[in-house]
Structures are given as structure tokens and as C-alpha cells.
Nucleic acid binder design. Structure first.
Lengths: 241, 241
DNA sequence: ATGCAACATGCTGTATGCAGCATACTTGAT
DNA sequence: ATCAAGTATGCTGCATACAGCATGTTGCAT
């Protein structure tokens, strides 16, 4: 279960385009939040964390403003940045919204997407099947994000894609935690296959139905891993150990 | 038609809660973008605009980062902030996304909203009818934002509300411009009435249908005011004149 | 022992200074 | 006259310095 050690996925980025320091800092902080180095409820000390990332307070503060707008942290006046902690209700809302967006994006994709677009999603799915075959959980998980936002991507609607990815970014930590047991994983893989088949058949209703089922079961799975009232962070490292 | 002069709506804010300088700056810049003082494509000079707002470059830069995350401006590396210009396709995508979110939020609202919630929306609608009666265009327009995000608000889903408001914030400028002629306005008012009736009857399908129709017609209306390829800003002030 | 008040510390919020880069202008050559 | 190259200017990006505030601690009084 531990063929990978770090959650870091920066290596997968485009190799040519060098990002600005701001984007870099935002990305690294995002990673720290997702993989739990910054736990929900933690105060983010600009000086400390900035030193740790090798940037001064100014770009640090700017990155925190960006993350606040993304909904990953909260900026309390006079007290600085706090990693946002999601309640059970918050997570329910996020999944419900994700379901709506993904279903409708799926319908649009069935109506509009080119064969090449569909083939590209099929390719991602095939790679995920291979990763599932060797139980490479972390790499599977990484691609899982892609395939879900993939429907929004090939729907051709940039705003839907933006909304989906924004919400998914907040959920990443939680989905990471609630990745579930062997049989649940198998069921998820089967549903993915159903989705791709529906997409290839341009059957929007069928696709929406599977997506709905899939996300409903995600809610069940995630719910178990969620503490009663507070956030999404058990104290210990949940997966990458 | 010119009973109001400024787009400014800060007076409508909660009187007690004093906002931080950051939030204040963000809000003021947002207003400047919406009412056209900062036109799409304009470069935002940190020094100049900062002086104009009475803040130094640092909080200015932080505000720009927030606005960039909100999608109202773009941060070009090495060139600073540029007010984002939306293409016709961008606007179509935004309206399509808004339609999806608003329809499904409406369905949820019909299923879940309390009588008090529904009554509050009815109250907003009634006030809009009064404003329509005296043709108070700008004040009508302000409440129009509220009633549309209102469905998301009383759906009880905070994430849907967030998504709706985020997208609507970007659209504000365009909706402002494309407010349309007398008869189109009358049609819009009639559709609003239909929506409230459907909501009060808890008829989700009917509500979704009206919302769909309403936004489709918004697209038609807005499209005319939209230049072919570029942004959403005719040079002159379009409405408050 | 407990509560309150004054103080000390450390952090946030803002301003300013400096280096680097992009762009515009000027000057010269063809 | 036009184009190119070098130069100059002004802005961005980042670091640092300073002021104000929130919080934790200590000492004193009851």
C-alpha cells in the first residue's frame, strides 16, 4: 500500500512554463494543506511558514490572500491566517454541489465533446485501471481528480470547469482521507468504467445517473472518516504511511 | 430614469461590522471594475490606483491577488494586474453555469426551504415590483442580484451559494450593461413573478423551467450589448446616464 | 487560592526601499 | 525615411522596517 511516499505532484507540471514565485508559493501551501502538514484549524504564522518555504512575508501574505479566496484558509482580522476546518455539513454541501456540476457537465460533454476528447478521458481511465491492478493507491488517487474534472473539461464550459476544480480542491484533503477499503475501491472502479461507457455512447442521462450514484457513495465513504462536528483531519497521517 | 448616480452599494452593508482595510479595498476595486472606472483590458497601476484609494502598494497588491482569485482581474507576470476582459464565449459559459446552479439550487430550495425563507424572497420580489413601478432601474438592478442568488441562499447549500455568487460577481458588469429595453424589462419582471409562485408552490420542476427560460433570455439580451470578440465594456457609461 | 490588572512578547498590518525587467524613446546608420 | 540598437524610464516583485494590537504571563490584592 505504500509504493509512494509524498503527495507532491509538482513534477507532473508542464516542464517549460516556469511559474511565478506567487503561483509556486500558493501551490506549495496548497499541498501542505492537502497532505496535512498544515492541519485544519492551524494558524499559519507568516514568518515561520515563509522561512520554511524560503520566501519573505510579503509574497507569503499574497499567497495566503489567494488561498483565502480559494476557500482553503480563512483570514481572521488581527489574527492572521487559519487553515479552514470543514464541518460534516460543509462536506455534504460540497459533494452535493460537485454532484450537480459534474452531472450537468457530463450531459454537456455527451452532447458536445469531440471523439478525441472522449478518447483522452478513456485513456486516463485505462491508466487508472492499470494502477488499480497493481493497487497503486496514491497514483490512482491523483488521476481520480483528473477524471472527475475531466467531464467538466470536455464539456467545453470553462466556468463549470473552474467551479468544479475550485470545489474539488477544497475536497481533496477529505477525499484523500476517505479513500476507503478494498471492496469500496473496486466498486468505485466499476462505476468509473460505467461512466466512460456512457460517455462513449453519448448517453447523457446514463452518465448523470452513474455520476450521481458514484458521488452518493463517496459521501457514505467519506462520512465514516469524518469526525462528528469538526474538520477533516484525524491527528495522524492517514494514508501515506 | 436617472434617479441614481452611483453604482456604489456600500451603504447597504451591515452598519456595525467594520470591515478590514483589505476587504474594503477589494470591495472598492470590485466596484470600480463593475461600474467601468476600470475598464476591461486596463492595466491597474499599483501606485496610481493605490493613491487614489488612499492605500499603499502592499495592501493594494494583496487586494489584487484576491481579485485575481475571484476572476475579475488577471495577474500577468512582470506586467502586473490587468482587468479581465471576457469574450462572448466566456459570457455564454458563465450564463450556462449560472443556469445550471440556479436551477438545481431552485429545486433544492423547493424541497427544503422554510416558509420564512420563501417569504423573505417574496419580500425582495415585492420590493422589486415597487421599484419597477417607478422605473427605478439601478435600485431594481441591485436587488436583482439578491433574488437570483436568493435561490442558492435558501437552498441551504453554502457551496452552491458560493459558486453562484462568485460567477455572478464576474457577470455583474455585463448584466449591468445589458439591462435592456422597456418591454424586455417587463418580461423579466413577469418571469420573476412566475419564479416566486413556483417556489411558494414548492414546484421544483416549474421553478427550474422558468429559471432556464429567464437565463436564456438574459443571454439573448446581453449578447446584443456584447462586442464581437472582446470584452463587455462599451466606452461610454451605458446606464447611469 | 483566586481573580484582576498591568506588563511583556510576538504577531499582524502597512509603508517604504531596492533590484530587476519590460517597454518606450532616442539616436544613428542604411 | 525607415529600421535597428542602445539607452532611459517606470513599473513590478520582493525584502525589510516600524507601528499597533492581541494574547499570554506575572505579580498583587482580596
Amino acid at each position: 500500500m505504500t509504493d509512494e511516499t509524498s503527495f507532491d505532484d509538482r513534477a507532473a507540471e508542464s516542464p517549460i512554463l516556469r511559474r511565478s514565485l506567487h503561483d509556486e508559493t500558493v501551490a506549495r501551501l496548497r499541498d501542505m494543506i492537502i497532505d496535512g502538514r498544515l492541519a485544519p484549524g492551524d494558524r499559519v504564522n507568516e514568518g515561520d511558514v515563509g522561512r520554511r518555504l524560503g520566501v519573505s512575508r510579503t509574497p507569503m501574505r499574497e499567497a495566503l490572500k489567494t488561498l483565502a479566496a480559494e476557500g482553503l484558509i480563512e483570514n481572521v482580522p488581527g489574527r492572521g491566517a487559519v487553515v479552514r476546518a470543514f464541518t460534516r455539513d460543509d462536506v455534504f454541501d460540497m459533494l452535493e454541489a460537485l454532484k450537480i456540476i459534474e452531472q450537468e457537465a457530463g450531459r454537456l460533454a455527451c452532447a458536445r465533446a469531440s471523439d478525441a476528447d472522449i478518447a483522452s478521458l478513456r485513456a486516463v481511465h485505462d491508466r487508472m485501471m492499470q494502477l488499480y491492478a497493481v493497487r497503486s493507491r496514491l497514483n490512482y488517487f491523483k488521476l481520480n481528480q483528473d477524471i472527475h474534472s475531466g467531464f467538466a473539461r470536455i464539456s467545453g464550459n470553462a466556468t463549470l470547469l473552474w467551479a468544479h476544480e475550485s470545489i474539488q480542491a477544497r475536497m481533496k484533503r477529505i477525499r484523500f482521507v476517505g479513500n476507503g477499503s478494498e471492496d469500496k475501491w473496486a466498486a468505485a472502479v466499476a462505476e468509473h468504467e460505467e461512466m466512460i461507457v456512457a460517455l462513449e455512447a453519448h448517453d447523457g442521462d446514463a452518465l448523470a445517473e452513474v455520476i450521481g450514484r458514484h458521488i452518493d457513495r463517496t459521501w457514505v465513504r467519506v462520512q465514516d472518516a469524518l469526525p462528528e462536528r469538526a474538520s477533516a483531519a484525524p491527528a495522524e497521517e492517514p494514508l501515506a504511511s
